[in-house]
């Protein structure tokens, strides 16, 4: 039986706090409304395309990225030995976002033959070096934890 009210009631909501919250809320709503007004001032096809990209990003996260991370978490909890879990989580939290950030340069989608000064680094090599360094550090961390846990569980 779950509780019927999922939102915990705030412990202290003094009148002064309430005033601050109402003021903040009004400022925020006004700012967002101004942004939507600016957006609605665009030609319809651009407006639709903007909404598609914003909505698409949310769907891509909620329906793809988050479930994948969830499954990885379950797998790590069930399959990975204790000493490997923290290193694996660290590896995922650092490399996952970095990989997403690197997509535009790894793909070199914006490269132009007339402008060699743009996207002019060996991105795949750099990315692989980062990944290898991260894996090496993770391995060192994991081995250390394994020794520590083996030492702790060995009877004196």
């Amino acid at each position: 039986m779950s509780t019927s009210s999922p939102t915990p009631t705030p412990t202290s909501d003094r009148p002064a706090d309430r005033a601050v919250r109402v003021a903040l809320g009004a400022v925020g709503a006004a700012g967002a409304a101004y942004g939507l007004y600016l957006l609605l001032g665009q030609p319809l096809d651009r407006l639709v395309n903007t909404v598609l990209w914003a909505g698409g990003a949310v769907v891509a996260h909620d329906a793809v990225i988050a479930p994948v991370v969830l499954v990885l978490g379950v797998l790590a909890a069930r399959r990975a030995p204790d000493w490997l879990r923290v290193p694996l989580v660290r590896l995922l939290v650092v490399l996952g976002p970095l990989t997403l950030v690197a997509v535009p340069v790894l793909g070199r989608f914006g490269a132009r033959p007339d402008n060699p000064t743009l996207l002019d680094r060996p991105y795949w090599a750099a990315y692989l070096v980062i990944v290898l360094v991260a894996i090496a550090l993770t391995t060192v961390d994991a081995v250390r934890r394994r020794h520590a846990s083996a030492g702790a569980s060995t009877p004196p």
């Binding site: 909501d13 109402v22 925020g28 700012g31 942004g35």
Partner: peptide
């Protein structure tokens, strides 16, 4: 679009903080 949604993002962010403050 980047300019318009900057206002939406920051406005909705301030609103979210107001709702969640306690």
């Amino acid at each position: 679009s980047h300019y318009a949604l900057a206002w939406v993002a920051v406005g909705a962010l301030v609103l979210h903080v107001a709702v969640k403050l306690p």
